[in-house]
Design a protein around this nucleic acid. Structure first.
Lengths: 145, 145
DNA sequence: CGTAAAGTCGACCTTTTTGTCCTTTTATCC
DNA sequence: GGATAAAAGGACAAAAAGGTCGACTTTACG
């Protein structure tokens, strides 16, 4: 099970697209979300190949959601970015066991993993965009760290 | 939120210790679990500093649980290995937001994160060791990939 | 047609994590 | 006291993820 920043960037970008309601360029999305443009471009490519968004090259081009925002689950996005088996494996990063039921931890982890995946499958982009609005999104000011 | 192989190795080693009921050397544990000895030794050092296990240097030495197996939660182990804030951050690896409530994904992720942490806090080593037994543990044979 | 804006693609660099090696320290046994 | 067995710890190599850069292709607009 791999939840990396790549997946997070992808979800943020798609959520931004959903909130805008129309197409936007990768550069627009990246600067708006404070993500490296070149890096987001690669993720966009993966999402396009997975059929989650459509791309239009050339002047005036950009990217747009290929499906309505309530039809795209977080699970689908993560699988598009990390690979189809990313959510089937052991919760630990880089784990070599790949969800082997012979692992002594399997009986403990698998129910937890299943619950997480269920949550990701049931949560769609529209829901994320909707819940994010009341936050007033002042991300830049809080980026103190 | 960081769940890496390091945490997994630590839990596996502690579970093995719990199942044996007595002390063992790091080398014994590592070979029994098919984990690099030198690497496990470093994790053991972290666990000892966190008060989860005790170490005894010199001939006939080894490591032993510092507390009964039902008093050590997976949460405590993970925090000892990954750092105290590892379970407070955003679920995505290396995420720079560090659980910033201003993130548009926060309202969606935080309840999930809280449920995972609750699970980790309530699950103890004794429970892991107990549930693992019925599996008959034939890990070596299934390591086909 | 030319140009500028946009995605595509591949090579490369940096940081983090994982893993190895070697030396030092500590304790036990003879 | 010397040999041996064990943890402690530091330096370093390897692998993976994150991130950057530049050349190329496609397309709309003037």
């Amino acid at each position: 099970m791999r939840l990396t920043v790549s997946s997070k960037y992808a979800i943020l970008a798609l959520e931004e697209l959903a909130r805008r309601g129309g197409p936007a360029s990768v550069h627009e999305l990246a600067t708006s979300l404070d993500i490296p443009t070149a890096y987001l471009a690669k993720l966009v490519s993966l999402l396009a190949r997975a059929g989650i968004l459509t791309t239009q090259r050339g002047r005036g081009g950009g990217v747009a959601l290929a499906q309505p925002a309530d039809a795209i689950s977080l699970k689908a996005v993560i699988e598009a970015i990390e690979g189809p088996s990313a959510l089937q494996d052991c919760p630990f990063e880089l784990s070599p066991c790949a969800g082997d039921p012979g692992c002594p931890l399997y009986p403990v982890w698998d129910p937890l993993r299943a619950r997480i995946v269920e949550f990701l499958a049931q949560t769609c982009l529209a829901e994320v965009a909707q819940r994010a609005i009341p936050q007033r999104r002042e991300r830049n000011e809080r980026n103190v760290e």
